[in-house]
Deep mutational scan, measured.
Amino acid sequence: SEFQINEQVLASWSDSRFYPAKVTAVNKDGTYTVKFYDGVVQTVKHIHVKA
């Protein structure tokens, strides 16, 4: 599913667990740039983002 900029989502971290994050960019290659609550910004594949 498509997510929008500033949408609150759950994004997987390197430990494969999902954490609350905010979408900061929707990228043309189908990835999302997300910002976790601790301030870390990461680009993740769409399969690693869920509502």
Rank of each mutant, 00 (worst) to 15 (best):
S1H: 14
S1T: 12
S1C: 14
S1E: 11
S1V: 13
E2C: 15
E2Y: 12
E2G: 14
F3S: 02
F3I: 05
Q4W: 08
I5M: 08
I5K: 05
I5S: 02
I5G: 02
N6A: 06
N6Y: 09
N6C: 13
N6Q: 06
E7P: 01
E7N: 06
E7I: 11
E7G: 04
V9A: 02
V9R: 02
V9N: 02
L10E: 05
L10P: 00
L10R: 02
L10S: 04
L10Y: 12
A11L: 06
A11F: 05
A11Q: 02
A11E: 01
S12T: 10
S12L: 15
W13C: 12
S14R: 12
S14T: 12
D15R: 01
D15W: 05
D15F: 04
S16V: 07
S16Q: 10
S16M: 08
R17N: 11
R17G: 10
R17S: 08
R17W: 08
R17F: 10
R17L: 12
R17A: 10
F18Q: 01
F18N: 01
F18A: 01
F18C: 11
Y19S: 05
Y19L: 13
P20W: 08
A21R: 00
A21D: 00
A21W: 05
V23R: 00
T24I: 15
T24S: 06
T24E: 10
T24Q: 09
A25H: 09
A25V: 07
A25G: 10
A25I: 07
A25P: 00
V26D: 03
V26N: 07
V26W: 06
V26A: 06
N27S: 03
N27R: 03
N27D: 03
K28D: 13
K28H: 11
K28G: 13
K28R: 10
D29Y: 02
D29P: 00
D29W: 04
D29M: 02
D29L: 02
D29C: 04
G30W: 06
G30A: 01
G30I: 00
T31K: 00
T31L: 02
T31F: 04
T31G: 02
Y32T: 00
T33Y: 04
T33H: 01
T33N: 07
V34Q: 00
V34T: 00
V34S: 00
V34K: 00
K35R: 12
K35L: 14
K35V: 14
K35G: 02
K35I: 14
F36K: 00
F36L: 03
F36D: 00
F36M: 05
Y37F: 13
Y37D: 10
Y37V: 08
D38G: 09
D38K: 07
G39A: 04
G39Q: 02
V40E: 11
V40D: 08
V40T: 15
V41S: 09
V41P: 04
Q42P: 02
Q42E: 07
Q42I: 15
T43K: 10
T43S: 07
T43E: 06
T43G: 03
V44L: 10
V44D: 02
V44Q: 01
K45L: 14
K45W: 09
K45R: 11
K45F: 10
K45I: 10
H46N: 14
H46Q: 13
H46K: 15
H46Y: 11
I47L: 11
I47N: 13
I47S: 14
H48T: 07
H48G: 06
V49T: 05
V49M: 12
V49D: 04
V49H: 05
V49P: 08
V49L: 14
K50M: 13
K50H: 09
K50W: 11
K50E: 06
A51W: 09
